[in-house]
Computed example of a mutant assay.
Amino acid sequence: MRSTIAIPVTVHPTPEELGRAIAQRILGGIERAAEENRRYLLGCPAGRTAVPVYAALGALAGMTRFDLSGLVLVMMDEYLVDGPAGPALCDPRAHYSCRRFAEQEIRAVVNAKLPAPRQLPAAGVWCPAPADPEAYDRRIRDAGGIDLFLLASGASDGHVAFNPPGSSAEVGTGIVALAEGTRRDNMATFPGFAAIAEVPRRGISIGLGTIAGLSRASVMILHGAHKRQAARRLLESRDFDPAWPATILHRCRHPEIHLDAVAAQEAA
Rank of each mutant, 00 (worst) to 15 (best):
S3W: 03
I5N: 15
I7K: 11
P15C: 02
Q24Y: 03
G28E: 05
G29H: 01
A34G: 10
R39I: 06
Y40V: 14
Y40N: 09
L41A: 12
G43F: 04
A46Q: 09
A55I: 15
G58Q: 08
T64H: 12
S69A: 15
V72G: 02
L73E: 09
L73Y: 02
M76E: 06
V81K: 03
P84I: 03
P84S: 08
A85F: 14
G86H: 07
P92I: 01
Y96A: 09
C98G: 05
C98H: 11
R99C: 12
E103C: 08
N111L: 05
L114Y: 01
R118C: 12
A123Q: 11
G124E: 00
P130E: 01
A131F: 05
R139W: 08
G145F: 01
I146A: 03
L150H: 03
G154D: 05
H159K: 02
E170P: 11
V176C: 04
A177R: 13
E180D: 15
R183Y: 01
M187S: 10
M187R: 04
G192F: 01
I196P: 03
I196D: 15
E198I: 04
V199L: 07
P200W: 01
L208N: 09
S215I: 10
Q229E: 15
A230T: 10
A231P: 00
E236T: 15
S237N: 02
D239V: 13
D241H: 11
D241M: 14
I248T: 09
H250R: 06
H254E: 15
H254P: 04
H258A: 04
A268Y: 09
A268F: 09
